[in-house]
């Protein structure tokens, strides 16, 4: 009895924070999604108007489609880049010190500001930016490209820039746990490098790939700031739909959209968690 009490006390701070700032807000959002709104205020009610409007509007489907599109393309790119980088670090770097140094080099941007990292693309991608100037001076194009900044291209570029790290770290972590003698055994048995990759390394790295995918997909699905900033407010995803409603003080409608987004994300995570045991993989 005494021991259980101590354990509960140890878990209490985490539990209190999560109850107060995660569970309660979610419950509040669900409640408010049934409320009504005037132009200036919101009032308690039980109506399905917000949901009816949401599901009958073609904008909703378009915006959800865009959100999935961003999520899928970003996922594919971050996975390819992240896997390659992790593979290089884990299997081609021989000294442990170099390995740690290069790994840190990859992770340091994670601890700096995302907003600054987004802003830093402007001198590259703008009409008179470095990319256009370079391409013109090489004679590849005659006039500056307009789709480099404030487009789907720049949004996805920023996502890949910000989130590839979330793939590199878990994939690298699982790769480091692969027993090196398995690789030798594969080579001794006559497997080519490509065969070793396909039949040994990729299957054994699956948990890391899953964890990375969960991070990248949820971050992109829930984003509103990257899309707003990198598209110059010209593109919309679900997060922006919510933040626009908030800016117009239409909280019930924002809440209804938020509930639908949350359900979508949680269903995706639940499916992915079936393939991996996070606690064991750390």
């Amino acid at each position: 009895m005494h021991r259980t009490l101590i354990t509960w006390l140890q878990a209490a701070p985490l539990a209190v924070i999560l109850l107060g700032f995660l569970v309660a807000p979610i419950i509040m959002i669900v409640i408010v999604s049934f409320w009504g709104a005037t132009e200036f205020s919101i009032y308690p009610d039980f109506q399905l108007e917000n949901y009816k409007f949401l599901f009958s509007s073609p904008v909703t489907y378009k915006v959800f489609f865009v959100t999935f599109k961003y999520a899928f393309i970003t996922w594919a790119l971050t996975l390819t880049i992240g896997f390659t980088v992790a593979y290089f670090l884990a299997f081609h770097i021989r000294s442990q010190t170099t390995q740690i140094a290069l790994f840190l080099l990859c992770t340091i941007p994670f601890w700096t500001s995302n907003i600054i990292r987004m802003i830093s693309w402007i001198p590259f991608l703008g009409r008179n930016g470095i990319a256009n100037q370079t391409l013109i001076s090489w004679g590849v194009i005659d006039a500056p490209l307009d789709w480099l900044l404030y487009s789907d291209f720049s949004v996805i570029l920023a996502f890949v820039h910000l989130y590839t790290l979330f793939m590199v770290v878990p994939i690298f972590n699982t790769m480091m746990r692969i027993d090196k003698s398995l690789l030798e055994a594969a080579r001794d048995a006559g497997a080519s490098g490509f065969q070793t990759l396909c039949h040994l390394i990729i299957p054994l790295t699956k948990p890391g790939i899953m964890i990375g995918s969960i991070f990248v997909l949820t971050l992109v699905m829930g984003d509103f700031i990257t899309v707003r900033f990198m598209s110059g407010s010209q593109k919309a995803n679900v997060g922006r739909l919510i933040s626009n409603d908030i800016a117009l003080l239409q909280y019930p409608s924002a809440a209804a959209t938020a509930v639908v987004l949350l359900c979508t994300v949680l269903i995706m995570i639940a499916i992915m968690l079936r393939f991996v045991n996070i606690r064991k993989e750390l």
């Binding site: 509040m28 408010v32 949820t218 938020a258 995570i269």
Partner: peptide
């Protein structure tokens, strides 16, 4: 509690912002 912690990590941030603000 463990699944709550995972949810806290993967939940779209704007939901926390919106929910806490509303409360």
């Amino acid at each position: 509690l463990f699944y709550l912690a995972i949810t806290s990590l993967v939940i779209p941030s704007i939901l926390i912002s919106l929910g806490v603000g509303l409360i």
